[in-house]
Amino acid sequence: MLAAARQALILDEVQRRGAATVSELAGRFEVSEMTIRRDLDALVARGALDKVHGGATTRRQPGAPSTDEPGFRAKRLRQQAEKEAIATAAAALVEPGSAVGLSAGTTTWALARHLRQIPRLTVVTNSIRIADELHDDDRTDLAVVLTGGVRTPSDALVGPVAVSSLRLLHLDVVFLGVHGIDAAAGFTTPNLLEADTDRALVAAGRRLVVVADHTKWATVGISTIARLDDADVLVTDDALPDDARQTLAEHVGELILAPTPQTNGSR
């Protein structure tokens, strides 16, 4: 197959799925990973895709509509190093024996992997991916509670069923992943039903910790989940711009900047 034809098929595949890894594409087109990397470089140079560590995603459009909601696969491949650094810092805030709430999202999904190391936890989540990540038949001291609800493109369970299941719960700490952070709009999401569910999760917690990488700054979704000053802690990465640091430090209870290793393709 000629390179141009293969690149057109790769573009179709990534646009259809939202994201794809180099290994997946190499298997799909029966070529080497090096060939796929060259194809992705060509597509990125044309402005057709965004290249991320280990693969590619659909192109992120500046000023995207406030209802634009990328799928879980696309978001999972973006800012991987930053999300891992944030997850490490956030996990340090969890005490053994706690009741923890995790909203749906790829940053909270990264956090879930670290929570597996903490004993005697009860985790409440509206994320199928997080519940799967935490499931362990050999753990008797880890309880995972999954809300019901309607599934969104980001694999969150939302809607009246999810909200009603959260209203009677009392959690020690809630970790909230968000689509956007803005000085005026606060913490936002592009999904109205997800906003209702996240607000119910926030209300169930005694302490709110927002986990979000630096690219969420100055992004606004259609619905506000919480104001900036509702957050007891915001954990983000050290690529956050100076103006954002100043604004957020004035509003959130505590601002934690997780150091991110500088690796090729991580930004």
Rank of each mutant, 00 (worst) to 15 (best):
R78Y: 08
L169E: 00
E250M: 10
I86D: 05
R120C: 10
A87D: 13
H135R: 15
S98H: 08
R16Y: 07
A42W: 08
R227G: 09
R38H: 14
A195F: 06
L255N: 05
T140S: 14
N191W: 02
L146K: 08
L255H: 05
S165T: 09
A218C: 01
Q79G: 03
V163E: 15
E84A: 14
D172A: 08
S103G: 11
A87C: 11
N191Y: 05
T108Y: 05
G205Y: 06
L49K: 00
G97E: 09
P259I: 01
D182H: 15
P62N: 07
D229I: 08
E82L: 01
G63E: 08
R129T: 15
T21C: 03
A112P: 12
T57Y: 02
D213F: 10
L248P: 11
T35P: 07
A81I: 12
L193F: 08
T108L: 06
I128V: 15
I130T: 13
L228Q: 11
R206T: 03
H214K: 05
R116C: 07
H114R: 15
A90D: 04
V235R: 07
V94K: 01
L142V: 12
D41T: 13
S165K: 02
A200R: 07
I86H: 01
T236N: 13
E24H: 12
D137M: 12
E95Q: 14
V100L: 10
L77E: 09
V173M: 06
V44E: 13
I118C: 03
H179K: 06
R245D: 02
D198Q: 11
E133G: 02
L176C: 02
R207V: 06
G18Y: 10
A99M: 14
G186C: 07
D132T: 15
T247L: 12
E250R: 13
V252M: 09
E133S: 05
I225Q: 02
L255W: 01
Q15W: 02
G159R: 06
L115E: 06
R116K: 14
S66Q: 13
E84M: 14
H251L: 13
V163T: 13
D141S: 06
P160F: 00
L40C: 03
L248S: 04
F187D: 03
A110T: 01
L11G: 02
T21S: 15
Q262K: 11
V173C: 10
P153Q: 15
D136G: 12
D238H: 14
V220C: 06
F72W: 14
I181P: 03
F187Y: 11
Q61G: 03
R245S: 00
M1I: 08
P259Y: 03
G253P: 06
T122D: 00
R116F: 03
T189K: 09
I130C: 07
D230Y: 13
L176F: 12
A131R: 14
G265N: 07
A131M: 14
R151A: 11
E82N: 09
Q61F: 11
G71Q: 12
R113I: 12
V31W: 01
P119V: 03
E194T: 04
E69V: 02
V210P: 08
L171P: 09
A85T: 09
L11H: 13
A239V: 01
D237S: 10
A87T: 02
